[in-house]
């Protein structure tokens, strides 16, 4: 790792940040499943001792497990898609990233980050757009702008990210009602944006437009 280029190091660090957040979510799912399964076990012991058990309580515990399995499945699917976003293109393949899908994935991955800050993150209007940038880099870029927007938001604020496809690229627009969204000022974001040929500036309505060349 010490021999990795700065770009690679930042990328690995970002991958670690997302993995840590996802693993925390998975632990929460397991914790709920553990308590629901334990509750079913408690009910079984009570029934063995001749205590009457309301079937509705059993049903609630079973439904809780089923709900958490669905939640865990979604979390793992998102993590899997994120892991594959770093795949190298096949030799000779003309690689293109579907930015609409990538934005959806980013919003799913960063929703927990929003929840922790007591703000909301939603997908706005999305039109089809493709880019030659890797999916991983696009998610990393979005993490930079979304994270900076969160840092300037207060509890209850709502961030919407929309995507507009253009002939020579695409624009992600980040808007928060009643607030101006500024681009991140850190060196990591600046270097990544430069490498991707992306620009970020706040428009006259206070929304942040992040434009990515195709």
């Amino acid at each position: 790792m010490n021999n990795a280029s700065p770009d690679n190091r930042e990328g690995v660090r970002f991958f670690g940040t997302v993995s840590a957040s996802v693993s925390h979510e998975v632990k929460n799912v397991l914790a709920v499943v553990n308590e629901a399964a334990g509750l079913l076990e408690d009910f079984t012991v009570m029934a063995e001792r001749g205590m009457p058990i309301d079937p509705a309580r059993l049903k609630r515990a079973a439904q809780s497990i089923q709900g958490q399995v669905r939640r865990g499945d979604t979390i793992i699917k998102n993590m899997n898609a994120f892991a594959h976003s770093a795949d190298a293109p096949e030799a000779g393949e003309d690689h293109e990233t579907d930015l609409a899908e990538t934005l959806r994935l980013a919003v799913n991955l960063f929703t927990r980050m929003a929840d922790m800050r007591q703000v909301s993150l939603a997908l706005g209007e999305v039109t089809p757009a493709m880019s030659r940038a890797s999916g991983f880099d696009v998610i990393h870029l979005l993490h930079g702008v979304i994270g900076a927007a969160f840092a300037a938001m207060s509890a209850g604020d709502a961030l919407t990210v929309s995507l507009t496809g253009r002939d020579k690229g695409a624009t992600f627009t980040l808007s928060v009602p009643g607030r101006s969204v500024a681009p991140p000022g850190d060196a990591e974001f600046t270097a990544l944006a430069r490498r991707l040929g992306a620009s970020a500036e706040t428009d006259e309505n206070g929304a942040l437009a992040v434009t990515l060349a195709r």
Binding site: N28, A31, V32, E35, A36, G38, L39, D42, M46, R57, R60, A61, S64, G67, Q68
Partner: peptide, 14 residues
Amino acid sequence: EVDFLENLSERMRV
């Protein structure tokens, strides 16, 4: 986590 609270609190009450 609502489900966690409900399940664990019920187990504690038991």
